[in-house]
Design a protein around this nucleic acid. Structure first.
Lengths: 230, 230
DNA sequence: AGACTTCCTTGACTTAAGTCAACTTAACCC
DNA sequence: GGGTTAAGTTGACTTAAGTCAAGGAAGTCT
């Protein structure tokens, strides 16, 4: 199956490339399809290339021995993932799973590294992607160790509000169980926090729709990491 | 003050460069000296370049509003830090402080980016550094959300043991308070865990010297994240 | 050496969040 | 459209780890 150059040119990672370089990228690209629930790679696997998403959604997560999991990212169309092993020579540090029917582009390691060597602007794009992700992880670590669950949830809701460009309400794009895992907690706790925050008049929850009733209060909570006791 | 090319050639980031490229790096490098305790940059500052360490030690940390801090890294000679803002255009996500008398090399943003464009192998080195760091953060996040403090401590001790190439004992290279902060906990808790693990015959603690009495037990603890109840 | 600070440890108490279990709601599918 | 499965919620209980406070060790500086 031929890979249309249009798809590749739409992923931000390749946005700085000229026609010629894009053509070269096309020649090394492999298209892969996954069903909902299918594992793309597992922690510990050797990585012989990385992926970008054409359509669908992918979650990247770590599993504890007892089965509890922590979601590190949920990626959507245009986003690359699985690059780390390409450049470290070490196995995947986490597992990737399609959480919807998903179509991916796969870039084999050796060919891609060669491309980067020839193409400084591709190198810079990749450096930009990695740096941004490092920055996000820094925030995640801060959230986990310096904030309590209500603070993390507030941060997330405000982030979503920003993303969806709606200051008054957000729509969850993942299930509440997945959100719990993304925030480093469990569904029971998340559920209780939702009701607590609703009681405190910060939000109103209707299924996956959440109205932000008090942005100042939410900002405060996200900042201080704690629900102020009343 | 002239920057000796020998120092630059010794930092891993520049190890792949030829004489000519090294010379170019020299011309953009600025040497900076810091006293113990001095802040190098603060979270939120605009980053107009990054650093590598010639001698001394630097801690990178996040601060919670009430003053509690979480150490993300402690870097030593040869290691680069502060790169993220150079490539994301966003401010520093954390604060850097010298924890000893420290001598640094500073690389101004624009000049360094230009160098990367001209030098694919430098680009690859930088990609390698960032990828490795991403990998480490993945482990840190796993530790924080999936393991309890004893598990995190075990992981750290085993990592140190590996680093110091001594399977039976390790010497802490940072204070116990700093270690607590690095593990996402507080000194009181860390102290208690040390005694608990000593009682469980896993380790013996004498100041900063820690003997690893039961590596299998420690491995298990690091893996499962919990002290098995007796 | 003594006085200082900083680091570490220990005790008593509190609390956020996890566990286990039951029940409800919503989604899905012949 | 009822019946199965998954997702979400609520309650009672437990627990890891944080807070507050007080003492002890250890290194540092005149």
């Amino acid at each position: 199956m031929k890979i249309p150059i249009e798809i590749i040119s739409k992923t931000p990672l390749f946005s700085g490339l000229d026609e010629d370089a894009l053509q070269k990228v096309c020649t090394i690209t492999v298209r892969k399809e996954y069903d909902k629930g299918q594992i793309i790679f597992s922690e510990g696997d050797a990585g012989n290339g990385f992926y970008t998403i054409v359509s669908g959604r992918v979650k990247i997560f770590k599993v504890a021995p007892e089965g509890k999991e922590h979601i590190l990212h949920i990626f959507g169309p245009g986003e690359p993932f699985g690059e780390v092993p390409v450049f470290t020579g070490r196995p995947f540090p986490a597992t990737a799973q399609a959480i919807a029917v998903t179509s991916l582009l796969f870039f084999p390691k050796a060919a891609f590294v060669a491309l980067i060597h020839q193409n400084p602007s591709l190198a810079m794009s990749m450096i930009g992607v990695l740096s941004m992700r490092l920055r996000e992880f820094t925030v995640q670590i801060e959230n986990l160790s310096l904030k309590e669950v209500p603070g993390r949830l507030s941060s997330y809701l405000l982030y979503l509000s920003d993303e969806q460009e709606n200051p008054n309400a957000v729509k969850l794009t993942i299930s509440k169980s997945q959100l719990a895992s993304l925030l480093g907690t469990i569904p029971e706790t998340l559920s209780r926090i939702f009701t607590k925050m609703a009681v405190a008049q910060l939000i109103r929850v209707q299924g996956g729709e959440i109205q932000l009733l008090d942005r100042i209060g939410l900002d405060d909570l996200a900042e201080n990491g704690k629900l102020p006791e009343k």
